[in-house]
């Protein structure tokens, strides 16, 4: 029984890490720009396709992972320059535009990639035995990569000058500008970094699950739940919420019902918000990155 619980917990942490990677991008953009970017899920999907084509054309998974992050960073930068920069003062317009982008990207992806599902061979196959548990080798690799990615990003935010500029903007945009932070550059960089995280999450997602043009809805919905659950704009909150959601889904599906899988996240969010109205790591009236 204990072994079963441990296995279920590790399963939850492994998938929760993926959720956290998506949520970090969403919460980062929200923290800086005040936009809940619904098109973030599309970047996860496109990142997965970049990885798929990288692997199937012989380039390999690791270059595919890097390419997915880089190409989505570029795509995010283009979106910020062409569209979101012009909606900064009108959050409703930004939200509406991001919904429009979902439709455009999804239909284009369906036309180009076809609706058929795709999978690619992950770098690690099969399972590993660890402390009596049988765990998927690729899932363990994904968990390690996610921890590395999120950890590195957190250090970047905390230790680097640019990271401090991002945090300053998250706390007070005008104040940050007054002390010399180049608002436009930081905004563009945040969008690019958030999109790169989505691209990387997509590549990792694709190494475990099927890729389709319509796959974006689930990661996006979970990313949004986590953004609220963790506290709008809080990166540590999004990460913690991601792992919590993974655990809730894993234990709920294993010991209650797998038919209600996505419902567990919403129950968690409702209960958490009753006790923490601004989210697990949120602070009323301010955004924290």
């Amino acid at each position: 029984m204990l072994l079963d619980i441990a296995q279920t917990a590790v399963d939850g942490l492994m998938v929760g890490g993926l959720y956290a990677t998506v949520a970090v991008g969403v919460t980062l953009v929200f923290g800086i720009m005040g936009i809940l970017n619904f098109a973030h899920g599309q970047m996860v999907m496109l990142g997965a396709y970049v990885a798929f084509y990288s692997v199937t054309t012989g380039l390999g998974f690791w270059p595919g992972l890097a390419l997915a992050a880089l190409s989505m960073a570029l795509f995010g930068l283009i979106l910020e320059r062409l569209i979101f920069r012009h909606t900064l003062t009108d959050h409703m317009a930004g939200l509406t535009v991001s919904l429009g982008i979902i439709m455009v990207v999804e239909h284009l992806a369906s036309a180009v990639f076809t609706p058929d599902h795709r999978t690619f061979d992950p770098p690690l196959a099969g399972s590993v035995r660890f402390a009596g548990m049988t765990l998927s080798a690729q899932r363990l690799l994904v968990l390690a990569l996610v921890l590395l990615l999120v950890g590195a990003f957190y250090l970047f935010l905390q230790r680097t000058r640019f990271g401090k500029a991002i945090r300053a903007m998250g706390q007070n945009r005008t104040g940050a500008a007054l002390v010399g932070v180049q608002i436009t550059h930081v905004t563009a960089a945040v969008f690019a970094i958030g999109s790169a995280m989505a691209g990387a999450a997509g590549a990792l997602y694709g190494s475990l699950f099927a890729i389709t043009p319509y796959m974006a809805a689930a990661p996006l919905m979970k990313g949004l739940i986590l953004t609220v659950l963790g506290g709008l704009g809080s990166v540590p909150g999004a990460v913690a919420a991601g792992f919590l959601l993974g655990l809730a889904e894993s234990f709920g599906s294993r010991y209650l019902s797998a038919s209600f899988r996505d419902g567990y996240g919403f129950v968690l969010m409702i209960v958490a918000l009753l006790y923490f109205p601004t989210g697990l790591f949120g602070v009323r009236g301010t955004a924290r990155v």
Binding site: D11, V15, S136, A218, A258, S259, R261
Partner: peptide, 17 residues
């Protein structure tokens, strides 16, 4: 006999059953 949410992609928890 087990049923799962139709758009499930991660089957690990239900397969553990």
């Amino acid at each position: 006999v087990e049923y799962f949410q139709p758009d499930t992609s991660d089957f690990a928890p239900v397969l553990r059953k």
